[in-house]
């Protein structure tokens, strides 16, 4: 028995080592193989940690809509404050909560803008969006809390197996080792600093009509992830405890895209109701007609704003939040 157990342990250790080393190789894809460092999470977290403590006044949290809609440069100019965008791809409300807690370790912001997208409550994958932040956060108690509470048990287990977590990068790494070429992303997609990503490209009518990823999407309030709704409430409470004004913002979508979402008209009333319940100001840019966004000039794809659209939204939102600062 002793011999058997020793062998099992030795092989398990060997397996974990190989898996770890190979996983690290695959992980390099995210920081070294994407041309011109267009994968924003590591860059924005690195920049965040080098920002002088207690300087950030406005923080944006949320998904890719957050990254591409809120331009800190415009906010800083209008409000004369220091803002920072900590949105990451697919960031769920669960992840946003731990991101905010990380911010509070170093800064005392006045305003939190939380981007609200119904998909953040229905998409299943917590591992990828959580990992985009977890992997680049500094070791702390918050990171430990994030590990134990932000992921399902099966997801937490995958952190032990980086080869599994980053397995999809294998083909890029093989391609790089074979050809020496890095992964090309859109040339226009650029990191503008303070967490903001921007792109000039405008979506075509054909893409909106015939290649729209929202084609089969539906809003169903009863199917929203309850745990994520709980974390949304926790985020509101965290802000209240720290006397921070939180504002929920839903970024605009092209009209064609909205028309494709089944029961899309129920999204605004649902979150408005929730916002009223928590007494959180809520601005929904596709229900609010004050700023007009044009499908083929303000959006880079079927659901993200381009540089032009982000400029419109940031200018309007910055002006609107001035009143909260005055209060």
């Amino acid at each position: 028995m002793k011999k058997f157990l020793i062998k099992v342990l030795v092989y398990s250790a060997l397996f974990l080592c190989v898996n770890f080393l190979f996983g690290q190789l695959l992980k390099l894809y995210r920081t070294h193989l994407i041309e011109a460092k267009k994968f924003n999470p590591p860059i924005k977290w690195e920049e965040f940690y080098t920002t002088e403590a207690q300087t950030i006044d406005i923080v944006f949290i949320g998904s890719s809509h957050c990254i591409r809609s809120f331009d800190p440069a415009i906010f800083d100019k209008i409000t004369s404050l220091y803002s920072y965008n900590l949105g990451t791809p697919g960031q769920s409300p669960t992840t946003s909560y731990f991101v905010l807690k990380e911010v509070l370790r170093f800064h005392k912001p006045k305003i939190i803008i939380q981007e609200i997208s119904f998909r953040g409550f229905s998409a299943k994958n917590q591992l990828v969006n959580g990992g985009y932040n977890f992997d680049f956060m500094k070791i702390s108690r918050n990171k430990l809390d994030f590990f134990f509470n932000g992921f399902k048990f099966s997801e937490s287990l995958t952190f032990l197996f980086p080869s599994f977590r980053f397995r999809n990068n294998l083909r890029y790494v093989i391609n790089y080792l074979y050809t020496g070429k890095k992964v090309k992303k859109s040339k226009e997609d650029t990191y503008k600093g303070k967490g903001f990503m921007s792109r000039n490209h405008s979506v075509t009518l054909d893409e909106l009509k015939n290649n729209n990823i929202y084609e089969k999407k539906a809003f169903n309030a009863s199917k929203l992830n309850k745990n994520r709704l709980k974390y949304l409430e926790k985020t509101v409470n965290l802000c209240k405890e720290n006397k921070i004004q939180i504002i929920w913002v839903t970024a605009p979508l092209p009209k064609i895209t909205i028309s494709k979402i089944r029961h899309g008209s129920k999204i605004y009333p649902f979150f408005k109701n929730l916002a009223d319940q928590y007494r959180v100001p809520y601005i929904n840019y596709y229900a609010d007609k004050k700023v007009k966004f044009i499908d083929t000039s303000d959006f880079q794809d079927t659901h993200h704003l381009n540089r032009n659209g982000a400029k419109k939204l940031s200018t309007d939102l910055a002006k609107r939040i001035l009143e909260y600062l005055d209060n």
Partner: peptide, 12 residues
């Protein structure tokens, strides 16, 4: 053994 285990990990 390690190759098989890694393949299982990749495909699981």
């Amino acid at each position: 053994y390690l190759v098989l285990a890694m393949l299982i990990l990749f495909y699981c």
